[in-house]
Write a protein that binds this DNA or RNA. Sequence first.
DNA 1: CGGGACAACGTTTTT
DNA 2: CGTTGTCCCG
Length: 651
Amino acid sequence: MKQQMKLSDNTHETSIDYKKELNPSQLDAVTSTEGPLLIIAGAGSGKTRTLTYRVAYLVEKGVSPQSILLLTFTRKASQEMLNRATQLLDSRCAGVSGGTFHSFANTVLRTYAKEIGFGHDFSIIDRSDTESLINMIRKDSGYASKNRSFPRKQTLANIFSRTVNKVLSIEDVVSHDYPHFSNNMEAIIEINKDYANQKRINNLLDYDDLLIYLHLLLKNHLDIREKLTSLYSYIMVDEYQDTNPVQAEIVYFLAGTKKNIMIVGDDSQSIYSFRGADFMNIMRFPKVFPSTRIIKLEENYRSVQPILDLTNKIIENAETKYSKKLFTNLHGGTMPIIIRTEDEYAQSGIIVKKIKRLNEKGIPLNEIAVLFRAGFHSFGLEIELTKNNISFIKMGGFKFMDSAHIKDVIAHLKAFASQVDRISWYRILMLLNKIGPAAARKIFASVSKKGWDAGLSDIKLKGEAAEGIMKLKGLFTKMELLSGSVSDMGETIIEYYIPILKKMYDDHPKRGKQLEHLVTIMERYTVLGEFFTDMALEPPNTVKDDSFSMNSSDNDRLVLSTVHSAKGLEWNTVFVIWTLDGRFPSVHALNKEKELEEELRLMYVAATRAKENLFFIYPGNVYDRSSNSFLCNPSCFLDVLPDNILERDYE
DNA sequence: CGGGACAACGTTTTT
DNA sequence: CGTTGTCCCG
């Protein structure tokens, strides 16, 4: 203890000058350590900075890092904050417990799995595993073949997840959001029950279960709750406007009696209601914690005045309850502009032209972003960028872990690790020639009873099917000799899998390379279970995919991103494309007040990403298939703005 | 079992 | 337009 004190004294002889490095509100937020605290942090107001300094402040004050809990929206966010705090103070900050709600739940539940009726070695299933399992139950139930318009696996997964995240009943969700499936109510409820049973039998938790069971644990086991609340004496939660009711109650339980809890958020940037987030959580917080102090961070350090004028005006039209008016000391800059073009092609053309001009002025590509409402909105632009040799990186969308070949290889690993993993066994068996659902069922029944060795030997098959099973058994026999090295097993599987890959995909060389990349990820693991958990909870979020850029080696690339994945980021210049009614806001939200309000916040998030230049562009006349109509009006969020705030170029 | 014909359906995203 | 699922036939 003494040694630690001495060490820290040495490492920060230049103590942090909080007064100098933070503005008064930030300083207040950083140094108010006791009791409940609500920070309303406007866009670009130094939210991350505040959290980082607060971690350092607490640690410097002598609070043990292990007793600080920092919950964030993504793992990347928490890691970045802790890294910065470490740079600010010293390595003690790295000992702070930080992560997402889900990873925190995972850690806690591994210890207390027995209390919720699971084994401590439970597996976490990702969204596609979830859908596969639901699909098996769906088929088994027989409802699907009786009824042509029975909900698909994806729809069922959506219904179930929504039920959990919004704390509603299946009846509520179906009748409200899927009224056309109301006549299947009993069947849907039955499948949901089966799904829960299957998970319990097979020791599986899906993403929602992690939250649900953590919540249940805290609610029903006071002794465990007390243990945790005495362990975590200082809690910080970021992006609170995007928490759902379950997460909010978890926070409430964790706060315990000391209630040293700080939440940070911006009600104007709540954009995840489609998955149960409710910005009323942040509104209600002072009621739930009666002695809450509220601090507003209103100075914006990001955008020039003309951009701020516009974003302030946009959000004025929302019914947010915590009013705040952002101001800046960054002067100069030009008025944001909205441009109408002839068609999509012309829209792309303008962007290409403007990017080239900005580039000549010395603004690097990675300081420019093109933002849009939905992933597919950038397809046309991607083609034009490629033609013009402008390299770009697209954020969000397509995920490494979601591609079929990666899933296949991991399924082999999972099947090897568990003879009762139905999802994985079906998946790998069906890859074999002449083996379909019926054979897979038979083989899996045998394997789950006798293990893979005897299970595969005892199965009677003919011809190609028998051959395939032989090969699979050969693979597993080989894997058993590898004494548990994760990457060695991976490589062995890939060797076996390559012929299948070649048969199935024309682009197998590219996919083969990605499989090699998977092996390098595996090399970081010695315990198979940890590999599986990490792949579910913290999957690699980018594919190093050269198809997306001309010269992928350099980092100077234009950023294409959905507005959702642009949250928290900033660029010198931002283009928002497809800003017309029906695209942004989306057609689906046009007649629904609540959803339209969220689209407005989404537009606010998009616009507040810009530091100096902000462009809105839309093609003037677009046919929309889904609504069978022509879209031609500029986004209503922008159209209502006065001319002295937004310049118009309608040709 | 596997392939072809046909019909239904569709945001956004992270864990 | 592409994905997902069902049905039906060889």
